[in-house]
Design a protein around this nucleic acid. Structure first.
Length: 424
RNA sequence: GGAGAGGUGGGUGAGUGGCUUAAACCAGCAGUUUGCUAAACUGCCGUGCUCUUUUGUACCGGGGGUUCGAAUCCCCCCCUCUCCGCCA
């Protein structure tokens, strides 16, 4: 959520930034917001001043009662009635104004940072880095779903039977490989200074609100029947909401948390081509990093997170590239995002395995997460998160890129975790 | 699933209709003093809106009601805890 104060004071900049992400009717939305804000202010003032008069009279009555001046009490009571009647219309007016303003604020996405490249779609994202050796398919190299079947690592049909499409069953060395990756990612994150958290994978509405999944985007989440609980689409939701509503001491920043969780996504409407095998699932595993940082240090933290995820990919010996998302491709709540993609030789495709974003103060405004600065004032810290990493596509790339005539080679860094060096 | 208790400021916890933003204690912050593995004393110490400030106003789980006036009385809802049952 954007800060209404900022919108008030730097309207032109807000509009310009919203246009950068190709947000429809940016100028109109902002103008409407300012009108709503003004209405809210006016309503607030009339409520407050009426309440002030009422409180004054009420106090008088108390005093007069003690002095036993009955007839004067009756007189003052008369006056309160008119004010009370006025309040009956003023208060709902104010509430309506507040609600309208709140809703309008929720509808505005975050402002892209100044460094975000111009562009409309994923085609306009800026290539920041690409591994020098990107293998070309030699026609004998299979996509991972073939390999998964050949070595009996993932059973998609069994998943269909138990649950449905997008819920694969990992078996034997496939399951072991998953667990190895989770442990590898968690161990590395700990070394990089992240505290491990095991959060609930079911969250309430307030949490879904805090990180921006609600309102309006409930289509991406599974809701538990007869409840207002949701299965998390990413550990970002419970991790960031750990601090919802808190006023932190500046000295605890930056907070660095990591969690492994399964993630659940309905992906309503996006089912179809290009989603074969492990490419897009309803349930998948992910290790997620979250940082809460001082505003002036958040972009340093973003660079640090990006460097860390690149380190992981290099340890896994996967060819990858780094993209800076353009304004039009940026997620609703993000101010700046790096996408990391690995090359899957069997499919001749780049697969997104990590998205590292700085949300600046957008989420902290929403969840009223603040810290106290050296002048004892409350300020909004920045939140960041990034996958480190999303499992299924890493598995897909490992299988495809490391396939040989004699089996699938496991990168050495994982050997202590898998207990095997090849899948043959 | 059955029964009961309770939700007050960072924590503990007083407060049963006006003098309560709310006692007291702890924690925290600032300072003074002594000196030593800390203590004593003094002051400050909730958040939002309004906003240069003051003032004003709202908030004692949420919503509604009674009243000139509600943390306090009434109704509904939510949540937490305890005991029993079942159970990983």
């Amino acid at each position: 959520m954007l800060d209404i104060h900022d919108i008030r004071t730097s309207k032109a900049l807000v509009i310009q930034r919203l246009q950068k992400r190709h947000f429809n009717n940016a100028a109109e939305s902002v103008e409407r917001l300012l009108v709503l804000d003004q209405q809210r202010k006016t309503a607030q003032l009339s409520v407050d001043s009426t309440a002030a008069q009422l409180n004054l009279l009420t106090k008088q009555i108390g005093q007069l009662m003690q002095q036993g001046k009955r007839e004067e009490v009756a007189l003052v009571r008369e006056q309160t009635t008119t004010l009370k009647i006025a309040m009956k219309t003023l208060v709902p007016q104010l509430q309506a104004c507040e609600k309208a303003l709140q809703h309008a604020l929720y509808e505005l996405p975050n402002l892209p940072n100044a460094e975000v490249p111009e562009g409309k779609s994923s085609a306009d994202n800026e290539l920041v880095y690409q591994s020098s050796q990107v293998p070309i398919n030699n026609a004998a190299q299979l996509p991972h779903w073939e390999l998964a079947r050949q070595y009996d690592l993932v059973d998609f049909e069994l998943g269909n039977k138990i649950t449905g499409a997008g819920f694969p069953v990992y078996k034997g060395r496939g399951a072991r490989l998953q667990r190895a990756l989770v442990n590898f990612f968690l161990d590395e994150a700990q070394h990089a200074g992240y505290e491990e958290i095991q959060p609930p994978i079911v969250v309430n509405e307030a949490s879904a609100h805090g990180t921006g999944q609600l309102p309006d985007k409930e289509g991406q989440m599974y809701q538990l029947k007869d409840t207002t609980f949701y299965l998390i689409p990413t550990a970002e939701v419970p991790l960031t909401n750990l601090y919802r509503g808190d006023i932190l001491s500046q000295t605890v920043l930056p907070i660095k948390n990591v969690a492994y969780t399964p993630c659940f996504r309905r992906e309503a409407g996006s089912w179809g081509t290009h989603v074969r095998g492990l490419n897009r699932l309803h349930q998948f595993d992910k290790v997620e990093l979250v940082q809460i940082a001082l505003p002036e240090k958040s972009y340093g933290a973003l660079q640090e997170m990006c460097a860390y995820v690149r380190y992981l990919l290099e340890k896994l010996e996967l060819p990858y590239r780094v993209l800076k998302l353009c304004g039009g491709d940026l997620g609703f709540t993000a101010a700046f995002t790096y996408d990391l993609e690995v090359w899957a030789v069997g499919q001749q495709r780049w697969l997104e395995v990590s998205s590292i974003s700085n949300f600046e103060a957008y989420q902290t405004h929403r969840m009223q997460l603040r810290y106290r600065d050296e002048h004892h004032r409350t300020q909004f810290p920045h939140t960041l998160n990034g996958s480190a990493l999303a499992l299924p596509r890493i598995v897909a790339a490992l299988l495809e890129n490391n396939q040989t005539a004699s089996g699938i080679r496991i990168p050495p860094i994982l050997h202590p975790y898998t207990g095997f060096k090849t899948i043959a």
